[in-house]
Design a protein around this nucleic acid. Structure first.
Lengths: 204, 204, 204, 204
DNA sequence: TATGAATGAGATTTCATTCAT
DNA sequence: GATGAATGAAATCTCATTCAT
């Protein structure tokens, strides 16, 4: 009612407000679960009014979807950067790098991937069978096969197979809590990735 | 007054009522999703009054848990029967049988496994990292390693890895809709299972 | 939360609860207007919980519609009783009785008719051009014409004409506040009704 | 930078903007009802921003009031012009002209009169019992009575009576859709007006 | 056991209105 | 004058759960 003499600017670039809402939502979803978080808590957390939420998202499921996309994109960015550092012809290295970068991205995000893919009410079954990470892995496998680095009858199948395998591994609560446990885990994942393509891993 | 001769008996053996409720819930969960299904719809579907639900289950999560157990137990029963038909020393065959039986169980259940493990509001993250199927596979891998059929540094790891891989594959909507597609899928899964244990598959 | 040791019976015959809600709604609508009344106020006024409202009505417009019907039916009952007291062949008397009984019904209901027909957000324009009162009047006019009591080219037209005329008159705020004002008003209405059918009234 | 050559002028004479807003509001009110129309829809319809609305009107009720006045004034103008064409002493003709001009004004406005008097959230009950049309008719009746053209005990009563009667008739949806139906309707209204003043109409 | 009317906390959503730019 | 992002009070409605019968 009364004018606030120290009021911060009311309007912000739209992207910024949206990000603030997403970040507040992410924190709350992780802290207390998606179901337990109300829209009101999200807006309070972002320091805006309730109605503002609906200027940027149409529902709670909508924010969740946005969080999912943001998370997956971040993981993909990490993968692309890591894989890009391998020599052009080092397909074995690229595959290993892919598995390690992907697993690292998930592990670093702590509960967020759980949120994004498991705890979230996934409207469709698509999330774990079609996403940009699987597409990227599928392409890598196909490219390597084309170059004779390995043989792959069905790169799409193997990509879904390996992505879900990796996802299941890193999704285990309390896994890789120490640096050495994490190193061991990454090594095991890498070995299984290589083996799936018929490459001999040095593990055993 | 005589009892209404057309009315069905109001009381039934508890197990039967419980089953009817579970079946109604399963159908509705698959049709419209867990969140979208109300207790009232379940009871209407089972032909009983709303209060009756609470004589058999404590909440919606409770029915879901019961459905999960029923489903997983059925898949495990199928696996045990199939694997049991292999010769005692045929570890390769047992592993192949495990993958095929598990995949078949999931595929036959249509969307139910999605419901049970993915769409469900999973109280814990355990579902895909600890369950009786993973335990069974883990044991099989450990036993085979003990007999020298393959080497496995960490049977638990490999079991989670393979179970999630398989789960991700069969969870793809519209997969294996024709008998030949299903046969191809089962073959590919088997090949990847064998490869993960360092066994040469005859597939490629 | 705690059991109320003096709690009144929670369940009542459905019609009774419905009536209580309607009566509470009517009082509030008259006191503070339809728009200004919330569902919660209605349920509080009826001594029930908010959700109970939705067991009996689907929306605020729904209660309003029910109030409308209840009111119109009550007015019609009064008309039928009054007109029924006239001798069979006394058409002039019947018409006069109709006008007086209808006006009385409206005047006695104070603001309710205003509510029901004017202040209400009338979804359709039907309320004042088709209702059971108009139908009844139309029939009376047609019957009288059939008996040669008066001539009426279009009984439906005259019924709508007179009903709206009467409605407009009694809807004037503050009209007929004293018994003598009311008597004068009823006389004037009756005279105009008779004149509309070409009958000479003794009024002027 | 040069001003964008395609952009239309942002500022307009205040009266023009106001008219555009009223016209947009009128269209929407008729299309979807007053309650269902939001301020935002009105401003979008008028091609201006939401805030601009409040430069011209203080609320939705305010536009509605403005529409009401505009409509009633237009009808009155039509009546005055038509009645003015009668000879000074032709009271019968003036009354007939009044009824016809008023009905014509309403019929030409289609649903707008409904909006203005019935569907509108009427702040007071005055609309149908006190307005400039009723005042004008009342004066005509009083003047005619003063000249001995008819007798009228209470011109105000008769004016309200007849205005509401006419309003109810023309407010019927679908009435007078063909020219001949309209002619018949106007004749019937005129006849009832004359009869109400004790004048013999040529109708029956 | 079974019923289903009643509960009531709480969720989502709308939208008239403001005001810094 | 004009804008439109932001506000936030308030409204509607849902539905898991209870409990008197």
């Amino acid at each position: 009612m009364l004018a606030n003499p120290v009021s911060k600017p009311r309007t912000k670039p739209p992207g910024e407000r949206r990000d603030e809402l997403m970040t507040a939502a992410e924190r709350l979803f992780l802290e207390k679960g998606v179901e337990q978080t109300t829209i009101e808590e999200i807006t309070t957390g972002a320091g805006v009014a309730k109605g503002t939420f609906y200027l940027h998202f149409s529902s709670k499921a909508d924010v969740l979807q946005a969080l999912r996309s943001r998370f997956v994109q971040a993981v993909l960015d990490g993968i692309v950067a890591t894989v890009g550092r391998c020599r052009q012809e080092d397909w074995r290295g690229k595959l290993a790098a892919w598995s390690t970068a992907c697993a690292t991205g998930y592990l670093d995000a702590a509960g967020l991937h759980h949120l994004a893919f498991v705890a979230a009410p996934p409207a469709t079954r698509e999330g774990l069978s079609r996403n940009i990470l699987i597409d990227h892995l599928s392409e890598l496998i196909a490219d390597g096969a084309g170059e004779g680095a390995w043989s792959a009858d069905d790169p799409g199948f193997t990509a879904v197979f390996l992505f879900n395998a990796l996802h299941g591994i890193v999704n285990q609560p309390g896994i890789a809590e120490t640096p050495s446990a994490r190193a061991g885990l990454l090594g095991a994942i890498e070995a299984h990735f290589l083996r799936a393509l018929g490459l001999w891993s040095g593990i055993d």
